[in-house]
Simulated scan of single mutants.
Amino acid sequence: MTFKSLKQASQQLASMLMTQSKDTLKLVGGLFLLSTVVGCTAGNPYVHDADRDDVITLGDSIFDLSGEIQLFLEEEAGQTFRNYTQSGAELQGGSLAASVVDQYAAAKAANPNIDTIVMDGGGNDILIPAFLFDPYGCKTHWWRWDISNSCRNLVDDIYVQAVDMLNGMDADGVQDIIYLGYYYTTGMQSNLAKAVDYGDLRLEQACSFTTANCQFVDPRPVIVPDDIIGDGIHPATTGSRKIADLIWPRLSNVL
């Protein structure tokens, strides 16, 4: 291709982009911002070998983005644990990262001797659609003070998926599961508070009604806006420290 034809092709491409609909441009922009908000990078690599191979962590970018929660827990334990968390992970399915269900499958494939799981999951199942176009009505507004029935149905589906996953872990011989819930998002994401409340309610119920020995950890009482980084979602070092301090008493009792 000559320089002239390359220039013409570039001009044509620029012209095509300029004539795209506003919806398409909003989608592209939204996907770009979403990748930042959910912490969707390449993700930290799986850790298949640790001091305690029988202890694994699963979940999304609350754990994975900075990795500080796991570091604090390992400092307390004086031991390392296997880590399968992935930024952008949904509980089941999803296209941004390996889901929590898939993370667990990878952990079993590497070493099926799993006694204890520290995890979260389900937040991105709500956050990702809410951040783009909110098709389920999980955000509240001045004209809608509560989440919609569609949002409740979405969370109820997450509950069913969580119970099925936890029951499967129990059937595999996992002895203890510590399930971290979600805290309130801030800034532009603060209108997800009622979705967080309903989500945590259903995740706590999943922990209660599964056949597995599952302990639910609620971070809402301790995490304040200063404990969250500027994206309004992920924990700062102080937030990670507080979350680790909530998890550690449960974890130390089963190590």
Rank of each mutant, 00 (worst) to 15 (best):
Q79Y: 12
G173C: 03
L132T: 06
D170Q: 07
L154N: 07
V174E: 10
D146K: 01
D134E: 10
W145N: 07
A77D: 04
G168K: 02
F63K: 03
Y182T: 08
P112S: 06
V118T: 02
V118F: 03
W145I: 15
I128H: 00
Q161D: 14
S61M: 06
Y136S: 09
I56G: 02
Y159F: 10
I177H: 02
I126V: 15
A162P: 00
Q161G: 07
D125W: 02
F63L: 13
D53T: 15
D164W: 05
E90I: 08
L166Q: 07
K108D: 05
V118W: 02
A162Y: 01
A97Y: 01
W143L: 10
R152C: 11
A171C: 03
I178D: 05
A89P: 07
E74C: 11
V160R: 10
L91M: 13
D125E: 08
T85I: 10
W143R: 02
D60W: 10
E76G: 06
G168D: 13
N111G: 06
L132D: 03
Q92V: 12
Q86C: 12
I178C: 01
A110M: 05
Q161L: 14
F131L: 13
A97T: 06
A162G: 04
I62Y: 06
T57C: 11
D176H: 15
Y159G: 03
S99D: 02
A162C: 09
Q86P: 00
N153I: 15
Y179D: 11
H141T: 11
A98I: 11
E75R: 12
D53P: 13
C138M: 07
Q103P: 02
V101H: 07
G122N: 07
D64V: 05
F81P: 13
Y104M: 11
A98C: 02
